[in-house]
Write a protein that binds this DNA or RNA. Structure first.
Lengths: 335, 335
DNA sequence: ATACTCGATGTAATCGATTCCACGCGTGCA
DNA sequence: TGCACGCGTGGAATCGATTACATCGAGTAT
């Protein structure tokens, strides 16, 4: 493949000049510039981004580490991130951590080795030495959706507390008293926030949240099935389940269907994260929607600020409840 | 950040020796090796992949260009690709073409400039000069799912003809006579294959496929809504709609719900590509499932063969019908 | 003792760009 | 006429690795 030297030779100039026209520097005579340009065209020259990166120490690439590509929330986020990045002239490389620390570490290492300009992370469960080391090394980084306490990294996220309170009120108004929740991995901030908000909202209504009603999930479908099954093993199973993400809600539905049970009659269901299919499920599931695309855009804005030497602040947006029919009928959702 | 020279200095050896231990070459005395190793650890040295790539002319990175990240089929594919690639020591960078030629071209150019080792493409509609140029330039490439005729590039895909025939037979047995289809972009091979198979299966049953029953879609949700709406503008609307991908099926359901119509009573529905939510929609939708993960694995196997100098053949797997209730009840799907 | 081999290591070229500095030449001003 | 200046351009160092080739010392065969 043709290199800058070939272009220089063909245009009868030095590589320095070719480089200048390549980068749009001024101070190249017009006729020289056009000679270079046509040499490039004739040779179908394309600059080698690897060489350029080595020299300039920037790759114009952002890394995005998400917890699960199969989760529509994250894929929507990824899409928004890519759009925002592209419009700023960056590419994005996605690493799928699959909710596993080891995989997450693998990706932060690989991406750092590739010298990406900045890293967007939605950290998996647990504390990662590799991630801490990465921030210590000074890579521009911002957390999206989830974060790790005690690290001086801006966080772009949606606060779901208010929406969870609304949800509990909704459930309560519909007459449900025994409310259970399925959590994400223990150390994820989003999971903890949702559980805390759930517990205190319950408390406001004078409802308890007994330990067996807190099902330990991991944000993946299978855990939704398992926890649901466990709930039915209880002497007094709950009347409603709040799945803290959409994949676990799917698991709940799988298990319910396997047992021949119906939503909401046999069990009410609500999910965190709204997805396109929820209006069409049987019944439509009430969910808490996050401003996913905006999360992605803001995260990229913050990260590019950091990358380009500006400072960046954390941003907190908010989520909202979308009542449908999976918790029962009330005046709002009936038609 | 520490470089190879720093390590060499600290270990009291030359950079050549450091490089040798880095790459596991033999012919380094054990004590030298361990001196180097501890120097690396002390400096938290990480090799610069950019520099290495420049020198060795390989990036250990594969590109994957898909038509739409929001389509669960492609995200499942992406996930399988990433897994397979990682286990072979490659990273993958995903480009989302969003069914737009211009975006696809942007990504093939960007990825080529970055000198990725090979490219996996599920080409968007239409003929791309940029893509042709890329294959002509000799980048190892394989097509997944979709392909472009006339290019000497291996194709890894699933043949859906048989399954489409089964689907038509299923529909026919259920008493539907006026069958319509929603296509993808005109030049996509998968769309054409599905339409052709649909037409000839119809023919086998002595059924016509009038032009107005061929709705022009683009594999995205909005087009499913639009085409469905058009169908209802017909003097004689169809009784069944076959959406050639899952996103358009979602669009059909959106539109049907907007009109207050029910599946399958008012309209039967089937989709190409099975997704996890289909068993839970109202009603569960009949779909044709592809061996998505295997597609991804085989594609990576073929591509790495090419990258590593071996030859690669096309592979064709097959899809199969999963009858549920969205086309009506028969002995197979009733329970 | 001489020459030769072999193992361990170092020196320097190289990959393809960017960029600092210097150079030559024409112009304007003293 | 001489000098400074600016413009357009070229030469060469540089980024951080890999690797062909050179070197050096010790051991071995003759």
């Amino acid at each position: 493949m043709a290199g800058i030297k070939d272009v220089a030779a063909r245009a009868g100039v030095s590589v320095a000049t070719v480089s200048r026209v390549l980068n749009g520097h001024s101070g190249v005579r017009d006729d020289t510039r056009s000679r270079v340009l046509s040499a490039m065209a004739e040779l179908r020259y394309r600059p080698n981004a690897v060489a350029r990166s080595l020299r300039t120490d920037q790759t114009r690439t952002l890394g995005l580490i998400i917890s699960d590509v199969l989760n529509p929330f994250f894929t929507e986020l990824a899409r928004a991130v890519e759009d925002a990045a592209r419009s700023r002239g960056y590419s994005v490389v996605i690493g799928n951590a699959d909710e596993q620390l080891a995989l997450q570490d693998h990706h932060v290492r690989t991406l750092s080795d590739r010298r990406i300009d900045g890293l967007l992370v939605s950290p998996a469960d647990g504390d990662s030495a590799v991630l801490r080391e990465a921030v210590r090394s000074g890579i521009p980084m911002v957390f999206v959706d989830r974060w790790i306490d005690g690290l001086d990294v801006p966080v772009v996220r949606a606060d779901g507390r208010e929406a969870v309170r609304d949800l509990v009120a909704h459930l309560y108004a519909l007459g449900h008293q025994r409310l259970a929740i399925i959590t994400g991995p223990v150390a994820t901030t989003t999971s903890n926030e949702r559980v805390d908000a759930f517990r205190s909202a319950l408390c406001e209504h004078g409802l308890p949240l007994p330990a067996p009603y807190i099902g330990q999930g991991d944000f993946r479908t299978a855990s939704g099935r398992r926890v649901t099954s466990d709930f039915f093993g209880l002497p007094e199973p709950p009347e409603a389940i709040f799945a803290t993400d959409n994949l676990m809600a799917l698991g709940v539905m799988d298990e319910l269907r396997r047992r021949g049970l119906r939503v909401p009659d046999d069990m009410a269901l609500a999910a965190f994260d709204d997805i396109a299919w929820f209006p069409h499920t049987d019944p439509p599931v009430t969910a808490i929607a996050q401003p996913t695309a905006e999360l992605g855009h803001r995260a990229v804005a913050a990260l590019t600020d950091l990358v380009e030497g500006r400072s960046a602040d954390s941003v907190t947006l908010s989520a909202h409840l979308i009542p449908r029919r999976s918790c029962g009928e009330d005046e709002r959702s009936r038609r």
